[in-house]
């Protein structure tokens, strides 16, 4: 994990980069970029996500993950995301995923994740058009 600045941290692993931005007091924002296709993505991603979740919980902040600039997620990564989403709910941390609706694979993957919006108000999966 690299520290990219006072309020930013970064995970870079292979073709995947996740930048965590804490510049807003009530929000931990994670921007995903590139490709996530490793065999065991949880080994790399999970510690970073867990740290972000802990930070959000301690600061009574929400978590926002932006996938608009992702090029590819393998199914193992999708499984990690789904599992994390459940953990965030159990921790009482509101979580929002955003994706680009104009990209077909993002629309298909993330529309399915909207099933978790129906569980409670803690989860939002939001298409962006810009």
């Amino acid at each position: 994990m690299k520290r990219a600045g006072g309020t930013m941290k970064m995970l870079a692993s292979g073709d995947l980069t996740i930048v965590s931005d804490r510049s807003q007091p009530d929000l931990v924002r994670l921007d995903w970029r590139g490709r996530s296709a490793s065999r065991h993505p949880d080994d790399v991603i999970d510690p970073f996500l867990t740290a972000a979740l802990d930070e959000a919980r301690q600061n009574l902040a929400g978590l926002e993950m932006h996938f608009e600039r992702m090029e590819y997620l393998n199914s193992a990564t999708v499984a990690v995301l789904v599992h994390f989403l459940h953990r965030a709910r159990l921790a009482g941390v509101g979580i929002r995923f955003t994706y680009r609706a104009s990209i077909r694979w993002q629309r298909l993957s993330f529309e399915a994740l909207r099933v978790f919006e129906h569980l409670d108000a803690m989860v939002q999966v939001v298409p962006v058009t810009a």
């Binding site: 065999r39 065991h40 949880d42 999970d46 393998n74 199914s75 193992a76 999708v78 499984a79 990690v80 789904v82 599992h83 989403l85 459940h86 694979w105 298909l108 993957s109 399915a112 994740l113 099933v115 978790f116």
Partner: peptide, 25 residues
């Protein structure tokens, strides 16, 4: 499948999600 995965105690590499994704996406 997503629902099943979400409530498992740990993430597994044998989730079966890849094959379901082949059918869906």
């Amino acid at each position: 499948r997503l629902k099943q995965i979400s409530t498992r105690p740990q993430v597994s590499t044998q989730s079966g999600l890849g094959l379901v994704r082949v059918a869906y996406e």
